[in-house]
Design a binder for these strands. Structure first.
Length: 411
RNA sequence: GGGCAGGUACCAAAGUGGUUAAAUGGGACGGGCUGUAAACCCGUUGCGGAAACGCUUCGAAGGUUCGAAUCCUUCCCUGCCCA
């Protein structure tokens, strides 16, 4: 490697826009820099869409820079309208605080705030005590409404409606940057490309108020090759919290990615050396599944740890690799009372109970379409009861479609 | 505050008293083909029921009617124009 962290980030696909490429390159390659990324406190967990900023922090931290992870206890009270088609629902302060705590705990797994080089802050600490009049006079006067209205990020909202509270968001985010510059000598803010306007507002503000030059960098907003937003599935978000989205599901999310995305994802979501990635992404046809498994394993390891990644990999092998032997232990499992199995359980009931189907109606529909399986045998009738006889040494394997699998053991 | 236009299922969007669980498109899901891929083809897409059928749904609450997503009243919300 060239040894340039900037080039590495660039080659891995982390960089969408930079305020001043030469300045940022110099800063990151030659100086110890403190940089920050903000995370909204809008949910109890981050999802895969936040992985790019997280990974960027991990890379820069490893290169010796100091990462400030800022949770938005204050800004989330206001809500960012950038690029959004409508106003987000207002959250209660208490929930925002709880979300922030959960998110900080999640970030801690990647950043280890107890070690040097990573700091966790919440902007509620300085935004909430603000005095309105003072804020308007000190900060508000530096913002041109004309220019804000011209911004691309608000275009949509100028047609569908933009409330005053949201219009203030940019000022608050700019103020965050100013505060971090003052208190932590933070000179680089990063964020999703939809944050470009907000970040530049901060750069501008610091120049006007402090006469200092600070920088901005954004990450590309990723969509999968088929156009879906990164980290979203039809069922919902790909949460980083194991209770909301299990390591097994998480592993499968990565394995299921489009062929065209494998190289890009390996670069962004794993710490594997670029040489290794080039080898993996060169694989073709069925061999590319090998690259997908590596991607899934590495990504799962970063988010859920080595043990969970091993288990998820073993579970996947059991589900898709023919007879998996002991590995079926790793599959999602539900215990069902022996007596109920002796009596026999209607498949629609059982599949719904273990969560493979959302309702009995849906389960019946799938049966009629040949989409439910018991021990790899297709359920051909609604009346085909699942009984104790179906249980082998590993219990009973239920499948909905080819990919969703669940194990039932008698208890 | 005044005028106008709207709020329908995951999304978009028809429907303006019964034949509407609600057209159509997208998405999603299942099957086929494959490589746990893409593309393509077929099918499904409120809940319960083996079925007959029943139940819940069209911003909210009331009302008219044998019968309401459709008519009336009040309320909530959104956009545009005027102030």
């Amino acid at each position: 490697m060239s040894g340039s962290i900037y080039d590495e980030l660039k080659e891995r696909g982390f960089i969408a826009q930079v305020s001043d490429e030469a300045a940022v390159r110099r800063k990151l390659d030659n100086e110890k820099t403190t940089f920050y990324i903000g995370f909204d406190s809008t949910a109890a967990s981050l999802h895969a869409g936040s992985l790019v900023p997280i990974m960027a922090m991990v890379h820069l931290r490893r290169a010796g820079h100091t990462a400030v992870a800022l949770t938005g206890g204050g800004t989330t009270m206001v809500g960012d309208p950038s690029g959004k088609s409508e106003m987000r629902q207002m959250l209660e302060e208490e929930r925002i605080r709880a979300f922030g705590t959960a998110i900080r705990a999640q970030l801690d797994r990647y950043l280890r705030f107890d070690q040097p080089g990573a700091v966790s802050l919440d902007n509620a600490d300085w935004l909430k005590p603000l005095n309105y009049i003072e804020f308007l006079r000190d900060i508000g006067r530096h913002f041109s409404v004309n220019r804000m209205l011209a911004a691309e990020a608000y275009k949509l909202r100028l047609e569908k409606g933009l409330s005053f509270i949201e219009f203030n968001y940019q000022l608050l985010q700019a103020y965050d940057y100013l505060m971090l510059w003052r208190t932590h000598k933070c000179t680089l803010q990063m964020g999703g490309d939809d944050q470009w306007g907000n970040i530049l507002a901060g750069v501008d503000l610091i120049r006007r108020v402090e006469g200092a030059a600070v920088e901005a960098m954004t990450f590309p907003l990723l969509t999968t090759a088929s156009g879906a937003k990164m980290g979203k599935t039809a069922q919902g978000a790909v949460w980083l919290d194991a209770n909301l989205f299990s390591p097994y599901q998480y592993f499968q999310y990565w394995v299921d990615c489009d062929d065209r995305d494998v190289g890009r994802f390996l670069r962004l979501y794993t710490l594997l050396p670029l040489d290794e990635i080039r080898r993996l992404e060169a694989l073709r046809d069925r061999d590319i599944n090998e690259a997908k498994r590596v991607l899934a394993y590495e990504a799962t390891r970063l988010t859920h740890g080595d043990a969970a990644a091993e288990e998820a990999r073993a579970g996947a092998a059991a589900a898709f690799g023919g007879q998996g032997g002991k590995d079926v232990e790793s599959l999602p499992t539900t215990a069902v009372p022996r007596a109920r199995l002796e009596a026999g359980i209607a498949p629609a009931e059982l599949f719904t109970e273990v969560g493979l189907t959302p309702s009995r109606g849906e389960a019946k529909r799938l049966i009629q379409q040949g989409g439910l399986y018991v021990n790899d045998g297709r359920v051909d009738a609604l009346t085909r009861l699942v009984t104790l006889k179906d249980a082998g040494p590993d219990g009973i394997l239920l499948k909905a479609g080819k990919k969703k699998i669940h194990r039932v053991v008698p208890a």
